[in-house]
Design a protein around this nucleic acid. Structure first.
Lengths: 339, 339
DNA sequence: GCAGGCGTTGCACAAATGTGCAATCGTCTC
DNA sequence: GAGACGATTGCACATTTGTGCAACGCCTGC
């Protein structure tokens, strides 16, 4: 089908036109949807293009259209189960609507983050999706001020302009409390991290509030960055005291896995007979036989679908600053005693 | 610092030039390293650029240079712990050398994959990195024929042209056998998947070969796609028979986690006293207290560093079709009995 | 004071593409 | 057969940027 070209560089429409014996415009129109080309020249062009290995240069095309087709994903800790699943779902949706994802990893030092973000603006991304609460607000403002279409996921700070997609963390956290309370738990701990992400804070506060309404106080443990290690350490701290909690709400499944492992391995406790645990996110590991964690499911597919819809609608009108809020449904497994 | 522009569209160098009262060339030179601009005009330009929120359009810049700064990552199952860590490491390195990653998810149906790949070529990516063995070889050939700089990771098929980075799967698998053999295991199973990826096949064969040399036969279980579920199912199949194996080499940590859980939860077996397990990859979960899996570490940082070096060297000369092979070192934890 | 040289600047062209407009070609109808 | 109409095609210009070349201005040295 295709042959190796002599030169190193890419093939241009001009070369295809010469080989096909038509004008460059004809080549351009062949690869433009809805343009007027006769069937015979179209065939000649496609043949020549295939022979030369021609591919339309989107960089040049984007110079003319406003639409570059690039959507930028900004996030930290992208190796986390929740984030990687989110990226998986979003990239798939993007490809389905002929967009392509550019990933900016903000885990590095903040100087490189700034540079990376600038890179993104430089590529005239069609939209910028902020995956987590971690990237600093100043970065997001830079995007907005540059006229970028910004979509925030699970970032409850109320900035004007960008569209936001959230999960009803507060409601879910309240429900989590009632699940544990109904199971008879009274000495309840909240396992969180020192990340201070808006959505994590909302979960902490929602839970605490519901507990207060029920006349209970909760102790909060924050033993490091969000992850397995911090959960394990929090378990060590909370369970070594004299009055052990009989339940824990972990604001993240990773924290929950760490916490459960500390309870079982370090203290020989049984879950759920001695200790009930509720997590959040419903990462894959929550369903593993070793954990069977009762948790709340992040509606990742719904989020991805919504993003897809927002981007498709963008072709027509400008961003509207809409806000979508999805429900996180409980997933009952085996870390909460049945009532 | 920056103001909201009236128009919707991006700011061009022309507008900055007009505001600064200089020629467009001066603006261009201000943002080009090593170009000759006086300090006074440079300052004027930077001021105007900041006021308007100007960012150099890399798409246009890439029309002139060969270098688009875009590096494309192609992979399937990118939500897998191993792949997401790889993506994390690579994106970070890329940003450090002023490149940006474009992620193509090949998990969808093959039609959309083809379309996505075409997209990539369209963006004149600087290089294409193939993360897994799953993308079909025809796609890779399309890349190569289009003059792309292709880097294959852990893909042992011997294509001419692309540079390849591999892990010495065979040696590690052989070592895995000897670890189990030395621990006294004699009825050894290999837990694999039906993916048929070259690196997975190499691990199977390396292990089997070492076993044959030691006069042992191994049984291979392939119970589905590579992942926790297939490992669990393989455990169910292997351990329900009359002569249970006393050890298993799982060609992936995810398989190992599923296998271990099946052994413990479904059959109440103890690891490692009744059953020794060795995995591969050293994903984060392998170090969790519930597993403490003895495994082989994928040298992800070395791989990422090597990619970074290849790309930086590319600026000077063309690709050389080099092959790098890294060692996967054993990580001793607690799923193999000490000798 | 003048010539030479150096640093800076602007013009114009290059890169690859999409598209409006006019010209051309073919076909259909009367 | 001729006119008209519709489909198709090519020209030229647009998008944004980098850069060679020539000109310009300023400073220095004689």
């Amino acid at each position: 089908m295709s042959e190796l070209k002599p030169g190193r560089s890419f093939v241009s429409a001009q070369q295809v036109a010469e080989l096909a014996g038509v004008s460059r415009s004809a080549v351009s129109r062949t690869f433009t949807d809805g343009a007027s080309v006769s069937e015979t020249t179209r065939k000649k062009v496609l043949e020549a293009a295939d022979k030369l290995g021609y591919h339309v240069n989107h960089l040049a095309r984007s110079l003319i259209h406003e639409d570059s087709g690039i959507v930028c994903l900004i996030g930290a800790d992208i190796n986390t189960p929740y984030h990687s699943r989110l990226i998986d779902a979003i990239t798939r949706r993007l490809q389905a609507i002929s967009r392509v994802a550019m990933v900016i990893n903000t885990s590095g030092d903040s100087a490189s983050v700034e540079a990376a973000l600038r890179q993104t603006l430089n590529y005239r991304a069609n939209a910028t999706i902020v995956l987590s609460g971690t990237p600093p607000a100043s970065l997001i403002n830079t995007c907005i001020n540059s006229g970028q279409h910004v979509i925030l996921i699970n970032r409850d700070d109320h900035l004007a302009g960008p569209e936001s997609i959230t999960v009803d963390n507060t409601a879910a956290a309240r429900e989590a409390f009632h699940m544990l309370h109904r199971a008879g738990c009274r000495r309840i701990a909240v396992v969180s991290s020192n990340a201070g992400t808006p959505s994590l804070v909302a979960r902490e506060q929602g839970f605490e509030e519901a507990a207060r309404e029920a006349g209970l106080a909760v102790t909060i443990a924050r033993a490091g960055p969000t992850g397995y290690g911090a959960g394990f350490e929090a378990g060590r701290l909370l369970l070594s005291g004299s009055d052990r909690p009989d339940a824990a709400f972990c604001v993240t499944d990773l924290l929950a896995c760490g916490f459960m492992d500390a309870a079982r391995v370090e203290f020989g406790m049984d879950v759920p007979s001695e200790l009930c645990v509720v997590g959040f996110d419903d990462i894959e590991q929550a369903g593993w036989a070793s954990y069977q964690l009762t948790t709340f499911r992040q509606p990742i597919d719904q989020i991805a679908d919504h993003i897809s819809a927002l981007l498709e609608r963008e072709e027509i009108g400008p961003a509207t600053g809409s806000r979508a809020c999805f429900h996180a449904a409980p997933v009952w497994r085996r870390t909460v005693r049945p009532k």
